[in-house]
């Protein structure tokens, strides 16, 4: 079993790693061999959306996921506290090394992938705000509105799918030809129906359930999206 990063952030400002975070780590670990074969030591542009505390990006950097020859790890979050947290967690776990072989971390403040050049991301990872709510909260005006930043990390609007839906719609534009995306869902997002619908509309998608787990009263799952 691969080691889990040590995380120590201010959880009033960033999402505290929980079952969903760990399910993503387990999914990446389960697919380690698959990813290494797919990228075959080549460079990878990795992008985590909404890294929060940075646990998943740090885990990937620690364990050379997906490739031994280094990667550019873009950590994209709308929450300025999360970008600081991600840097802090990566530093705490000794991932910001200067030996040039563990890849390079680049935190970027952005709203999902709107600021990324097309078709560059080889590995995309997303633990979205998936909790169903009446609406997606507004983006806070200032960095100091701490509670609002946390709401943004949790609440996903109708069916909890408003944010994930945007990312799914942009996958085609964002992923490189070999690109792979790991996205987390809860049962109330109705991922099975969704996956069927996507594959029916475009049969070139290859979508697989990688891990699922009951966590309290939630059932969480991680799906892998790529082109055949």
């Amino acid at each position: 079993m691969l080691p889990t990063p040590y995380v120590k952030c201010d959880y009033e400002k960033v999402y505290e790693p929980a079952e969903d975070s760990f399910l993503l780590l387990d999914s990446l670990e389960k697919d380690l061999q698959f990813l290494q074969t797919r990228f075959d030591g080549n460079l990878a542009i990795v992008c985590e959306l909404g890294p929060g505390s940075g646990i998943v990006t740090t885990f990937m950097m620690q364990n050379n996921i997906p490739s031994h020859n280094g990667a550019l790890y873009l950590a994209l979050d709308i929450n300025p506290w999360a970008l600081e947290g991600t840097l802090q967690t990566a530093t705490l776990n000794n991932c910001i090394k200067e030996n040039g072989h563990s890849g390079y971390l680049e935190p970027v403040q952005s709203d999902l992938t709107t600021g990324l050049r097309d078709k560059q991301v080889d590995l995309l990872v997303f633990n979205p705000p998936y909790v169903p709510a009446e609406e997606v909260p507004e983006i806070p005006d200032t960095k100091e509105n701490i509670d609002q930043w946390l709401d943004l990390a949790l609440l996903g609007g109708v069916d909890g799918m408003e944010i994930t839906g945007k990312v799914l719609d942009s996958l085609e534009t964002v992923l490189s030809p070999k690109g792979v995306a790991y996205i987390l869902f809860c049962a109330r997002n109705k991922p099975e129906q969704l996956v069927q619908k996507i594959m029916q509309e475009d049969p070139s998608w290859d979508i697989e359930l990688i891990e699922h787990r009951k966590a309290g009263w939630e059932v969480l799952s991680v799906y892998r999206f790529m082109h055949k």
Partner: peptide
């Protein structure tokens, strides 16, 4: 940010996606 990263960032404005001037 590293100078390398400038090669992966474009303008976030959706309307600029149809232009060739949104990158770099």
């Amino acid at each position: 940010m590293k100078v390398l990263t400038t090669n992966f960032l474009k303008c976030s404005v959706k309307a600029c996606d149809v232009s060739n001037d949104n990158f770099p």
